[in-house]
Every structure is written in structure tokens, then in C-alpha cells.
Design a protein around this nucleic acid. Structure first.
Length: 859
RNA sequence: GCCGAAGUGGUGGAAUUGGUAGACACAAGGGACUUAAAAUCCCUUGCCUGUAAGGGCGUGAGGGUUCGAGCCCCUCCUUCGGCACCA
């Protein structure tokens, strides 16, 4: 389409509606116009086009948000903008890109609100979704909205329940009595986040533990695969490390200790089987099943007292009090299986019931915790590894030569471990064992607002899963969302829902009343996007084959462990069932940094809100009223510090394009960085400059050589940096380009149009407008990415730096590719250099072509 | 304590991975335009020294490797994130 027709076209799009001489660009009009255009034309709808070759299919995923009542936070658009730019860039490079958005819409806040106000969580949630969607759309992201999902809808959770049935069929779900955080005053279970300093967030009553029947998923069965398959993933080392750490695989040995006057055998896990001769006592956790059996009559009172105290303590208290070891003697003795020595068995909460076997052999000479305990309770310490420091002041945990250890004497640590493990196996008193920190996943919540677990308890058949065709099992209406008071879910109070018939025998049965945790829906949502309307399967096999795995997943590091581990676990189960074809769901993961804010700090390190601080000079601040000097520091955004930035207000004032570009310009995507509104205005000024540039009118004249070269350098830099998600440096290159172009008299089409294309992933609204103004039909997002000519990205003449003894002393220009000899002789000719080298001996010269000459002199 | 990431001007941050430290932007100062202000445009801007040319110092601290270190190695300090009696 050429100029004559264009005017007509532009008019239909209303481009002439604004005053072109305005000093600031009409972002509001432009943004609304193009958002409407994209929506009306479904510009970003994507299909599984079989003509697109496999390596040109790209799945780019954002972590979907929980639609909170507070609305969008500036942190959300950061990751979303990054992926949006990347997607737009990739589309322009010929990729078929799937880029969906949805909502993780089951969650505690809506339920708590319901308890308070009686409003159905669905009503609150859907209103919040509405608001979120509106806010997200204001930023002009290129999502395929036709694939939007919400996890709380029955069409969605039908499949969450279906996957649960598969887990159940595979014996990966079991019931167990497990403790929850219990508030004795509210009569309700609490999530960890509702427990503050060991107290209930709402009523400040000390939280205790209460055992309750729960559903558990056997994630531990997948521990090794979750660990090993990390290798193949393109994730940051720190996130991989966190996952490895969480899984916590450690190699050791289990050793069986006979108990004196008993047939029972106490099994322990140790990574230091080589120190077995140094074991002077045993410790079992207060929750260990043998506690009762091992406690002698004389000790029972003390043990009973200790165990019940431990039970009342919250996890936090237990770890807090940990600095001072506590424990009690059971009265029983174990026998060291190597030499028959009698060793006392203690009960202490520094041993965790949930790790290893819940029992240890204590070797105080070579384990610091055991050492502290032994010193406190005056237990013997036997040194079995020779060291310079000895074991008088602390345990020796290093490597050394074994002593007092019979057949291990003279061996070092690793040799001794190997020898001992061999020996244990041979004598059948133990064997090499692997232990994990990872525990099975408590998969039930005593809540209303979650997916009902699709099982019934039948009087005659026991636990019976629902039939697949009976899914979804929907949430019933309840009168009150308040907790039942027994620790059970509010669902348990609805008799008409609970009472049902058994799918197997047709007899009387009652429904499971636990619901699933919020993690459930997010474990597989990326699969539903592939085929969101499917009623026959969670997604069609072909769609999964077409898109999976996710090529790029961007989100906050706060989900580094749980969400990512749970989703990987479910994915592996689905893989084993043949439902998905990839072992891992997320090939590449990038964690965006947090957007922080400035706050002010007094000398005593207390924080002062932004409102209470004033600037008293260049970067000096004082508290209003008192005049106390303050230091500017970086802090998390929080209501109390009054430093929360609301994206809606930013968009109102500066426009979505400025908001998007500023968030990318602040610094590298992966690191956290402080919000600065003056920094934002710098980006706004840049876009305003671009706009004013366009008002010059496009010239059909040839551009000068400098402009052409700069353009090609810019194409190269912006392309490469966008591809590697280094958006901040790509933007700075575009600024350099604009600054140069601004100095020119004219605006040549041959450099202006490619520049609009470079800009378009970053500021799509403005770029669509500029593209239309240049006389083209929409959409700029369908244009191919400009290509650079490599020869035009390098300068013909380069500045050569001359150093003497490593210090820069002179510079001169030389043609690119000038040979070494010439560079050296020209360097020596420099006035300053001859001054400095005169009368001195040149020891060595280093010439790096096109860069540097270094002359080393002596004397 | 352990694991991970990071320390660069007044501020946010660049630096082709060993070759000109401070790109780009903010803030600040000066100037132009204006009756004035805003907006815009131009200039200065790491620190010290010097009229200037120049010189010295400078990437958390100290050491090392190298012709040459923000980048590599060792020790230490600080900040942030995660885990926290894991046997």
C-alpha cells in the first residue's frame, strides 16, 4: 500500500484526531486504539499450523497470577513484558508462538474474605479476575486470550481431579495422620503463612499441632528422577541448587542396633558409619514409634512429660529452642552390634522424626550436635579419628586416621566408610542406604475453596474413587464458610453432599471432605492452554506433541522450589502414564528479579515511610518533624512504607508503552532493582522524542552513510540482546540511535522504518501507530524482523590505544585490519610515547590488532 | 551455620568474557528559548591535583597470576535470596 491510499486508511483509523504539534505524544489515544484493533482482529490468536517446522514452534509461558483483591502489582508486568517482547520478536522472526495467560484462582484470601463477609469466594474471585484481565490488557500483551483458563472453574478442575484419580490408581496417594498447624482458639487449621512467630495471625493464640487424617502424595518415589533430570534443564544454577538442596539426597548406611532385653531392633541412618566405634549413646525422636516401648517404669514420668511438651511446641519453637539441647533418658540400652558395648538410648527433639529413621547413633567426638548434647548430659566421648585439635573444645568433623576402631584403625575417612559398609552388609547388621530430605507431599486442606478430592469412603468397600465419567465433582453451595470447628473442611457440614452412594457397590458411602491445595491447579495448567476447551481429555495428544515442552518459563523466584518441584512431579507421572511425551515440562526457566522500592532508614536501622522523609540536599534526607538524618535504602514495597507503585496510575500518567519499556530498562531481568519514577520519566522522554521525530515527516531521500551504519549496528545489537533477554542494553542502543537521528535534518524512510520494527516488540502501541503513519497496513507485529549486513556493523577506522607499562598514554586512529608491525611503529611515533620511551629499554611489545599496543619498558 | 547470587560515579546500571572502566539513563550544575514558568534544545559532570597541557588515584578490602585484571586464583568483609539441629 502506497502513500495515496494511505491517507484514506489512516483516517479510518482516526490517526488525524490528535494535534500533531502537541509536545507530548498522545499515548492514551494510541494505546486504546491499537488494543481495540488487536482484540477485534484477534491478532495474536495462534493455531497448531502443521506447516510450521518443529524448530519454529515456540511455547513461552508466564507464571499465571493469583487474582488477589489488591489488583496487579508492578512486579507482575515485569515478567509479562519480558515474555511479550520475546514473543513478538520471535514471531517477527518466523516463529509460531504460543503465549497464553490465565488465573490461579483457588486460594486462601478469597475464602478468608468469605468467612468474614459471607460472599461466595467464586463471586469475589471472578470479580478479581475481571479486574486483573482488564489491567493486564491495558499493557498491550500479545496473549492468545482465546485460551484463557481459570483453575477454579469446574471445566478446569474436572481434569485436576482426573489427574488425582490417576495418582490414586498408581498408588501415589495415601491417607495418613499428619499434623497441621492448629489454632485452639479459632478451631481451625492454618496455612504456614497464617502462622506468625508461632502464633495465629488473626487471634495471636499460640499455634499447636493437631494430627488429622490427610491425603499424601508420594513425591519421594520420584526423588531420584527429580534430582537427576535437573541436569538436562536450562535453568539457573541457583534454582537447580535450591531444588537439589530441597531433595537433599545423601548417601550413608543404615545400621541395626539390638536392644537389651528386647526383641526390637533400633535402626539408624548415618553418613558416618566409620565412626560406629565412637557411638556412646543413641537418640530417638520424641515421635519415634519405639518411645513407649523403650521407656522403663522409672523413667516414664520424665519421658511422658518431655514428649508431651515437644508435641505442644510448634516447629518454630522447636528450632528456636534448639540452641540449647534438651532430652531425656529412656532407661533402655542398645547394644553396639560391632563390639557388644551397652549404650544408653535417649529421647531428644534435636532428632527429627521425619528424616532418616527418626533415630541416630550419637558420636559426640565427631558430630557437633552430639558433642553439645554429650557435654550437657555428661555422656562419654570416644575419639575415633586422630586430629591435632582433639575433641576437648568441640567435635572434630574433618578427615583423619582412625584410632580406637579395631579393623578400621589406620584408615582415612572414605576408606573406613567403604570398609565399614562392606562389613555391615556381610554381618547383616546394616547396609548402604540413601536418605532424602524431601518428604511426601501433604495434599489436603481442610478448606472449602479448593478442588474436592474425588473419592468416597464406603462402609463396605473402603475408599473408592469416583468414576471418570462422574467428574467433575463440583463444590456444593454452603451456608457458612467458617471452619467446622473439628479441623475438618466446611464441606463436612453439608450432609446432603457428604452422604452419597458407593460407585462400586451402590451402598451407603460418604464423600471425602478434604480439598486439594492451591498448588494442584498450577501443576498442569500449561497443558490446558494447549487445548483449553477439550471435553474428552485434559488436552489433545497432538496439541501436546505440537507445543511441549515449554521453551521459556518466566516467573518469580519465590516459586523456585515448591511449584516447580510439584509441577515436575506431576509431569513425570503423566509421562509414565503415556499422557505427555516429555520428561520435563519447562525446558528453560528464567526468574525475574523483584522490583523493590526506596525507603528511608534511621541510624538505629528502623525504616521510615517515604511520606515521612524529605530531601535536604543532594542525596541527603531527613525525617519530617524531627529532622533526624535518614539514609536512603532499598526495601520491598509495602503498604506501611507507602512506597507501593500502582501500575494503573503509572499507565494513566505515562502510558503502557513507557511502563513496559521502563521496567525493561531498569536493569537485567534476573536481578532485583528499585523502582524510580524519575527513571521512568527518562524512558517517557525517549518515547516522546521518537514521537516528535515522526512529526518531522518521512523523507524519501537516501540516508547518509553514518546513519546506515548506525542502523545496522542497532539492528544487530537489538536483535541479539532481545534474543538473550538483555532488554536493558537493547533499549540503550535504540536510545543511541534516536539521539543520532535527532541531529539529522531529515528522517529517511530507509532507516526510520527498520527502526520502528526494532522498537515494536518493546512499545507495540506506539510502533503500530508509527507504522501506520509511515503508510503501512497493520499490523507491525506481522512484519519480518529487519536483517543487518555484517559489513555495515563494523567501523572502517578504529581507535588504537597505546599503553606504556599497562597505562594508557596515547591513542590514534587506524584502518581496520592494520597489521601488527605498522600499528607498533605508528604507536612508537606518538609524541607522548616517544617521550616516555626515550632512553629506556623496550623489553617487550604486545600488539592486539584493532585494539591495543602495549610497550613494556625498563629503566 | 550451610547453599546460591551479588558488591562498579551522587543514583539505576554498561563493559564484545583478560585488552580504552563508567555506554545509556536519572539526578545535579551552567546556558539558550520564554514577560515568566513548564516543556524542549545545547554544554559540563568518577575523585584528587593543575591556569592549562598533563599527572596521580579509582570497580567492597587485602594478596596473587599476567605485558595488561571490574573480569582468573586465594583470604576476608558486606548485602540480598533460600535452607536451617537433615545424622
Amino acid at each position: 500500500m502506497r502513500i495515496s491510499e494511505e491517507l484514506n486508511f489512516i483516517d479510518t483509523f482516526g490517526t488525524q484526531g490528535y494535534d500533531s504539534r502537541m509536545s507530548s505524544y498522545p499515548f492514551e489515544q494510541i494505546e486504546l486504539k491499537w488494543q481495540k484493533y488487536w482484540e477485534d482482529n484477534e491478532s495474536f490468536r495462534v493455531t497448531e499450523d502443521p506447516k510450521v517446522p518443529e524448530d519454529k514452534r515456540l511455547y513461552v509461558l508466564d507464571m499465571f497470577p493469583y487474582p488477589s483483591g489488591a489488583g496487579l502489582h508492578v512486579g507482575h508486568p515485569e515478567g509479562y513484558t519480558a515474555t511479550d517482547i520475546y514473543c513478538r520478536y520471535k514471531r517477527m522472526n518466523g516463529y509460531n508462538v504460543l503465549h497464553p495467560m490465565g488465573f490461579d484462582s483457588f486460594g486462601l484470601p478469597a475464602e478468608n474474605y468469605a468467612i468474614k463477609t459471607g460472599t461466595h469466594p467464586k463471586v469475589t474471585t471472578e470479580a478479581n479476575i475481571e479486574n486483573f484481565r482488564k489491567q493486564i490488557k491495558r499493557l498491550g500483551f500479545s496473549y492468545d486470550w482465546s485460551r484463557e483458563i481459570s483453575t477454579h472453574t469446574s471445566e478446569y478442575y474436572r481434569w485436576t481431579q482426573w489427574i488425582f484419580l490417576k495418582l490414586y490408581e498408581k498408588n501415589l496417594a495415601y491417607e495418613s495422620e499428619t499434623p497441621i498447624n492448629w489454632c485452639p482458639s479459632c478451631h481451625t487449621g492454618l496455612a504456614n503463612e497464617e502462622v506468625k512467630d508461632g502464633k495465629c495471625e488473626r487471634c495471636s493464640t499460640t499455634v499447636t499441632r493437631k494430627n488429622i487424617r490427610q491425603w499424601i502424595l508420594k513425591i519421594t518415589e520420584y526423588a531420584d528422577r527429580l534430582l537427576d533430570d535437573l541436569e538436562e534443564l536450562d535453568w539457573s544454577e541457583s534454582i537447580k541448587a535450591m531444588q537439589r538442596n530441597w531433595i537433599g539426597k545423601s548417601h550413608g548406611a543404615s545400621v541395626r542396633f539390638p536392644i537389651e532385653n528386647s526383641d526390637e531392633v533400633l535402626e539408624v541412618f548415618t553418613t558416618r558409619s566409620d565412626t560406629l566405634f565412637g557411638a556412646t549413646y543413641m537418640v530417638i525422636a520424641p515421635e519415634h514409634p519405639f518411645v513407649h516401648a523403650l521407656t522403663t517404669r522409672e523413667c516414664s514420668e520424665a519421658v511422658h512429660e518431655y514428649v508431651s511438651q515437644a508435641a505442644q511446641k510448634s516447629d518454630l519453637e522447636r528450632t528456636d529452642l534448639a540452641k540449647d539441647k534438651s532430652g531425656v533418658f529412656s532407661g533402655s540400652y542398645a547394644i553396639n552390634p560391632l563390639n557388644g558395648t551397652k549404650i544408653p538410648i535417649w529421647i531428644a527433639d534435636y532428632v527429627l522424626a521425619s528424616y532418616g529413621t527418626g533415630a541416630i547413633m550419637a558420636v559426640p567426638a565427631h558430630d557437633q550436635r552430639d558433642w553439645e548434647f554429650a557435654v550437657k548430659f555428661d555422656l562419654p566421648i570416644i575419639e575415633v579419628l586422630k586430629s591435632d585439635q582433639g575433641v576437648k573444645v568441640s567435635a572434630f568433623t574433618g578427615d583423619g586416621i582412625h584410632i580406637n576402631s579395631d579393623f578400621l584403625n589406620g584408615l582415612d575417612k572414605q576408606e573406613a566408610i567403604d570398609t565399614m559398609n562392606e562389613y555391615l552388609k556381610e554381618k547383616n547388621i546394616g547396609e548402604p542406604t540413601v536418605s532424602y530430605k524431601l518428604r511426601d507431599w501433604v495434599f489436603s486442606r481442610q478448606r472449602y475453596w479448593g478442588e474436592p478430592i474425588p473419592l468416597v469412603h464406603c462402609d463396605s468397600c473402603g475408599i473408592v474413587p469416583l468414576r471418570e465419567e462422574d467428574l467433575p465433582l463440583t463444590l456444593p453451595e454452603v451456608e457458612s464458610y467458617a471452619p467446622s470447628g473439628t479441623g475438618e473442611s466446611p464441606l463436612s457440614t453439608i450432609e446432603s453432599w457428604v452422604e452419597t452412594t458407593c460407585p462400586a457397590c451402590g451402598g451407603k458411602a460418604h464423600r471425602e471432605t478434604n480439598t486439594m491445595p492451591q498448588w494442584a491447579g498450577s501443576c498442569w495448567y500449561f497443558l490446558r492452554y494447549l487445548d483449553p476447551k477439550n471435553t474428552e481429555a485434559l488436552a489433545a495428544k497432538e496439541a501436546m506433541k505440537y507445543w511441549m515442552p515449554v521453551d521459556l518459563y518466566v516467573g518469580g523466584a519465590e516459586h523456585a522450589v515448591l511449584h516447580l518441584l510439584y509441577a515436575r512431579f506431576w509431569h513425570k507421572v503423566l509421562y509414565d502414564l503415556g499422557i505427555v511425551d516429555t520428561k520435563e515440562p519447562f525446558q528453560r526457566l528464567v526468574n525475574q528479579g523483584m522490583i523493590t522500592s526506596f525507603a528511608f532508614q534511621k541510624k538505629d536501622k528502623t525504616l521510615v515511610s517515604v511520606e515521612d522523609a524529605e530531601e535536604t540536599g543532594v542525596d541527603t534526607f531527613a525525617e519530617k518533624g524531627t529532622g533526624e538524618p535518614l539514609e536512603r535504602v532499598i526495601a520491598k514495597m509495602s503498604k506501611s512504607l507507602k512506597n507501593v507503585i500502582n501500575p494503573d496510575e503509572i499507565i494513566d500518567e505515562f502510558g503502557a508503552d513507557s511502563m513496559r519499556m521502563y521496567e525493561m530498562f531498569m536493569g537485567p531481568l534476573q536481578v532485583s532493582k528499585p523502582w524510580s519514577t524519575s527513571g521512568l520519566s527518562g524512558v517517557y522522554r525517549f518515547l516522546d522524542r521518537v514521537w516528535r521525530l515522526s512529526q518531522k515527516g518521512i523523507s524519501e531521500e537516501k540516508a547518509d552513510e553514518d546513519s546506515i551504519k548506525l542502523l545496522h549496528k542497532t539492528i544487530k545489537k537489538v536483535g541479539e540482546d532481545t534474543d538473550s533477554l538483555d532488554f536493558n542494553t537493547a533499549i540503550s542502543q535504540m536510545m543511541i540511535f534516536t539521539n543520532e537521528l535527532y541531529k539529522k535534518e531529515t528522517l529517511p524512510r530507509e532507516v526510520w522504518e527498520p527502526f520502528i520494527l526494532l522498537l515494536s516488540p518493546y512499545t507495540p502501541h506506539l510502533s503500530e501507530e508509527l507504522w501506520a503513519m509511515a503508510g503501512h497496513a497493520p499490523s507491525v507485529s506481522l512484519q519480518p524482523w529487519p536483517q543487518y549486513i555484517p559489513e555495515l556493523t563494523v567501523d572502517d577506522t578504529l581507535e588504537i590505544v597505546v599503553q606504556v607499562n599497562g597505562k594508557v598514554r596515547a591513542r590514534f586512529d587506524a584502518a581496520k585490519g592494520t597489521d601488527k608491525e605498522l600499528l607498533l611503529s605508528r604507536a612508537l611515533e606518538q609524541e607522548r610515547i616517544s617521550e616516555l620511551t626515550e632512553g629506556k629499554q623496550i623489553v617487550k611489545t604486545i600488539v592486539i590488532p584493532d585494539k591495543i599496543v602495549n610497550i613494556v619498558v625498563k629503566g
